[in-house]
Design a binder for these strands. Structure first.
Lengths: 208, 208
DNA sequence: GCGTGTGAACACCTTCACAGCA
DNA sequence: TGCTGTGAAGGTGTTCACACGC
């Protein structure tokens, strides 16, 4: 019941629930119903209850959920207790944006790499940018566990290979290309233009 | 069979197929099997054939698909023939990155807005940044159809309201917050940190 | 009474496996 | 023979609806 297989769709919603809980906590609310929390998270109440049921029993019937308790429990399951050191490869505009976005707990950018000599030596999110050729050293020294690729698409595969070789097995890829990997690293590709294309599809099929 | 309801999951894969087809076309290949195209797109052959079947019959049994024909047909369904004018709100690092990413056909950034006086008047992707207060005018003058929100989370909702008021009904939101809308505009929220959290979840549940 | 937790029904999506056609 | 197109099967995710406990 605790580490049975959690549906991927449920995992994807956990961060949303956590954010909603954080804002409830910030506004001083200490109890919340599945209806209200679902509303905040953009889901259905039944969906929310089902999702939570994979992790245990948190609510009180007739009352709802204790915000602080639920938040702590979910947070622990998502790994919010540990700190996740990231290595960022490619520090153009996108990389710079992510450097700050991804420096909030439980994440922290501990290394940033680029090939541009003009960028090497400058700072992002409190980290000095090093040259990409130092990847293996940078990963070893900082203990980075998750790699974030923000390079152009044509070099993303070799960057990915380098990260895997350096021991990074979780990779978030923002380059619009499919990455292949020898071992079983986990790679998630976020394709920004894809979302836009989906929007265009719906727009062009909109009933007029 | 042509405009029956297309599964959302299929729609989400179309951009991937189109990119794969583009790279095949670029490399001079004029025919491709479902197995090869699926490989390039990171899917299963049966999946690919099923997806294509929603749009018609494109292949030749025993042979495969004509790259150019398939590409043109899918492209038409996705709206690649028209040009989609975008209005970009919030031109920090993320907005700047998207300005260039989103200026490739069939998309074009036709207006960019920000509140920072230091940014107003400067140029991104060939467009001069205007002050956010001119949103209604900017949309009206440029005919922007899709809005892209790259502002901080705390102002995203009012930006969203402004866009809807200006007549923009398709919105891509990169601020980490849930947007509500009065009418039935279509809003897709891309939460960059969410993907990272999913990665952390898997990493912390990785068998050791 | 009220809201959770959950079996059961449902809808959606993916995969299999093979008939059908070049 | 080779590969597509697709009914049928299987799997995954969502919603219903109600028993249960505060």
């Amino acid at each position: 019941m605790s580490d049975d297989p959690i549906p991927g769709a449920t995992v994807a919603r956990l961060p949303v629930y956590l954010r909603a809980l954080a804002s409830l906590a910030a506004s001083g609310q200490d109890t919340v119903s599945s209806a209200d929390l679902a509303e905040l998270a953009g889901t259905q109440p039944a969906q929310l209850r089902r999702d939570l049921s994979y992790f245990g029993t948190f609510g009180t019937r007739g009352v709802g959920y204790d915000v602080a308790t639920l938040r702590a429990s979910l947070g622990a399951h998502v790994g919010e207790d540990e700190e996740w050191p990231l290595v960022l490869v490619g520090v153009g505009h996108l990389g710079s944006a992510l450097a700050s976005q991804f420096s909030q707990p439980p994440f922290r950018v501990v290394a940033a790499l680029d090939v541009d000599p003009a960028l090497v030596g400058t700072t992002r999110a409190g980290v000095v940018i090093r040259h990409q050729s130092e990847m293996a050293d940078a990963v070893a020294e900082t203990g980075a566990v998750i790699g974030v690729i923000c390079t152009p698409a044509d070099v993303a595969q070799e960057v990915c290979d380098g990260l895997v070789a350096a021991g990074v097995v979780s990779i978030l890829n923002f380059a619009p290309t499919l990455l292949h990997t020898p071992g079983h690293a986990e790679i998630r590709t976020v394709d920004l233009a894809q979302e836009l294309a989906i929007l265009a599809f719906h727009e062009s099929h909109r009933p007029r």
